[in-house]
Simulated assay, not measured.
Amino acid sequence: MNIALLVGLIGLLFALIIGYNIIVQYRGRIESAKKQETAKYNAIIETTEELIGNAHQFPFSKELLLCLNQRILDALRAISDLVPNNKSYEQRMINMQSQFDQLQNNYAGGDSTSFKSPTNDQQAINMLKLVKRLREILRAEHKKGRVNTQVFVTENARLETFQIRINIENVIKRSKDAISRGQSGTAKQLLKKGIDALTVKNDSYSNKARTHLESMLDELNNKSKKERDDAITEEEKDDEIDVLFQPKKKW
């Protein structure tokens, strides 16, 4: 066999092997990228479903529920485009669209539930984390153009009010607990922090809450003043008794 032909065939074989490996690696990178993107969208779906699961514990408006459901629907569409052969995502997308339409057309209005004040610090922390996550998602969806500006402004302000309310209601509870334990100094510090936090707020809840906190603080201050006055009066009585019963001088 001609040596040049043999060398050429060997070179061609190597070229085919290298080309095949490049194609395999390229396809591998594409599949890896698809898996990463799918995992990202699945995480979005899971976390959003988790948030919606709190709708019976915390007041969700129709607009907020629509925003969250739309987020899930968009994530399902993205996955369906990435893995068109997976019919399970297509069916989930159909079900989600039906749920979204039902919510949009037949929602009774108002919040999903009434606001419930936190009963302890841990519950307050969990509620604050929930509000923070909801505000972050609302902001992200607005930046993507999926939530119009008017809805964003209204819902963001509403969630901010809940954030303040959770903090203040927890301050009131902790103050009352401190008072019942006789820790008036701790209660005063908590009340002052609450009042300071509400100083820059001018909504209906904040104004009422500030008045309530100030009333509690005034009551504590008056009680402390009375206790001091009573202590002084008692001390003066003791002094008078000491004068009456002190040894008489002999002249």
Results as ranks from 00 to 15, higher is better:
Gln183Ser: 14
Phe152Arg: 01
Trp251Cys: 05
Ala55Glu: 10
Asn148Gln: 13
Glu90Arg: 11
Leu213Ala: 01
Ala15Gln: 02
Phe14Glu: 02
Lys249Arg: 12
Leu5Ser: 08
Glu240Phe: 09
Ser114Trp: 09
Ile168Gln: 07
Asn156Phe: 15
Gln183Lys: 11
Phe60Gln: 06
Met216Arg: 02
Asn69Gly: 07
Thr186Met: 10
Ser204His: 13
Leu130Trp: 12
Ala43Glu: 13
Val83Arg: 15
Thr38Glu: 15
Ile172Arg: 15
Tyr26Lys: 10
Lys132Tyr: 10
Ile23Glu: 13
Asp203Gln: 12
Asn202Ala: 14
Glu49Cys: 08
Leu16Trp: 06
Gln163Gly: 06
Asn95Met: 06
Gln36Arg: 15
Lys173Gln: 12
Ile17Ser: 02
Ile94Gly: 00
Ile45His: 05
Ile45Glu: 03
Lys143Ala: 10
Thr161Arg: 12
Pro118Asp: 02
Asp230Pro: 05
Thr149Cys: 02
Gln36Asp: 13
Val147Phe: 05
Lys40Gln: 13
Asp81Arg: 14
Ile166Lys: 04
Arg181Ser: 13
Lys144Pro: 00
Met216His: 01
Ala4Ile: 10
Arg165Pro: 03
Lys248Thr: 12
Asn42Lys: 14
Gly8Glu: 05
Thr47Cys: 00
Leu198His: 02
Val243Phe: 14
Lys87Cys: 01
Met93Tyr: 04
Thr161Asn: 09
Ala124Tyr: 08
Asp196Cys: 01
Lys208Phe: 08
Tyr107Trp: 14
Gln123Phe: 06
Lys237Leu: 12
Asp177Met: 10
Val151Arg: 03
Asp111Trp: 03
Gly11Thr: 08
Arg146Leu: 13
Phe152Gly: 01
Arg158Gly: 02
Gln25Ser: 07
Gln99Ala: 11
Ala187Val: 06
Ile22Met: 00
Leu213Val: 01
Val243Ala: 14
Thr186Trp: 06
Gln102Leu: 14
Ile3Asn: 03
Tyr26Ile: 11
Phe162Asp: 00
Lys62His: 07
Glu219Gln: 10
Phe58Val: 07
Lys223Trp: 02
Pro84Lys: 04
